[in-house]
Amino acid sequence: MLIHVRHRTRYHYEQPVKSIIQALRLMPRNHEGQYVRRWQIDLDHDGTLRPGEDAFGNVMHMLSLDGPIQDLCLTVEGEVDMQDTNGILRGTCERFPPQFFLRETPLTRADAAITEFARDLFGRHGGNALKTLHALLATLHLDMAFDTEPTDTSTSAADAFALKRGVCQDLSHVFIAAARVLNIPARYVGGYLMRSDEAIHQEAGHAWAEAHIPGLGWVGFDPANGICPTESHIRVGIGLDYLGAAPIRGARLGGASEKMAVEVTVADSHLDSQNGQDNQIRWQRPPETARQASQQFQA
């Protein structure tokens, strides 16, 4: 299936910003089951966008902009050919042995509650890693309510688990923390999801987890949906936790307070072109100067 993604981030600053620097993990890589047909990053300001790779092999662009800037729009747009692999990953870019992904981070530290929860599941499934992970997936999906209110990007797994609510990021963190307690390497995945409920327009990207099982390799688990990733899951970045795979990490000089709006559209390319873009703000071509500076990336 060919999936079309458009991800637009708009910033509005209270005062003109002097300079902006951002690290972007917004570009998917290929692996078996995922082939990037075309992909480009655009911005509506004169700046430089330098491609590179981060520690985990994610494509990372460094964006530098000089002000004064009061409004900024960053657009990611592309098409990816997807195939279902039952959640099993092959041909991914691997920079570290699975064992590395046992490392705990502040966001994925297992507290007593998560530890007990994980060990209990493990015991009930006779110490079988794969069965335990599937149980973990189902239990988290059932027990933790989707709620954007109580958590934010800095909420830890332990806090979210105590609240029994959160967003895909929080559920993934809890999943990862629990897997690592059981000595199962686990990692965070950031990407896009084409939703089965046909909600094309979303307010954010998606996140899920991967765990490493001897014999199988890396396997995806999407606790927010209670399923293993399908052909609808476009995988963009991996990390030990959200921070390692965050789509945008930035800093700026000046600007006082900031407003940010994110619009994500993920749809079947075929249907999308038929539906047209009726209810979407039409993209304006960036000014010429910006086009020169902002490089485009064709996959």
Binding site: I21, Q22, A23, R50, G52, M62, S64, R249, G250, A251
Partner: peptide, 21 residues
């Protein structure tokens, strides 16, 4: 703060990218 502790006010955003380059 773009690569390590995101709350750090003591560092330089983008320093690691300059180093890696």
């Amino acid at each position: 703060p773009l690569v390590f502790d995101p709350g750090s006010m003591l560092g330089v955003p983008g320093l690691f990218a300059a180093y890696a380059a």
